[in-house]
């Protein structure tokens, strides 16, 4: 959800941009990271883990934990928390990691 009236900060510009998430067109604000653009659209699960197939999303927001990987315009494993959203970007969740070692499945 977008914070329209921030208790302290002035309102952002209203520059909206469009992007696609798994094929669905969505809106974001200019200057947001991909992670924020997704969370603004109530998407918090960005992918599933490789081995145990557990849900993953934003954790550290500082490019360190690598939990927020998404696929951007076909490029896999992009850190969504440090990459800015751009007009027309095609974002896909990171659900396609090969389950090369097997494991218990959970979603």
């Amino acid at each position: 959800m977008y914070i329209d009236h921030h208790p302290i900060l002035e309102n952002h510009g209203n520059d909206q941009i469009s992007f696609f998430y798994d094929g669905t067109p969505l809106k974001a604000r200019q200057g947001q990271t991909i992670a924020a653009a997704l969370m603004m659209n109530n998407i918090r699960k960005f992918g599933i883990s490789r081995k145990l197939r557990q849900s993953r999303g934003l954790f550290c927001a500082n490019g360190r934990c690598c939990s927020c990987f998404v696929t951007v315009n076909g490029l896999e494993h992009v850190l969504s928390c440090t990459t800015l959203i751009e007009e027309g970007m095609e974002i896909k969740p990171n659900t396609g990691d090969p389950d090369v070692r097997g494991g218990i499945h959970e979603n």
Partner: peptide, 9 residues
């Protein structure tokens, strides 16, 4: 409980 988030150890 998972300790290593990446390798799920």
């Amino acid at each position: 409980t998972i300790v290593c988030r990446c390798e799920e150890i």
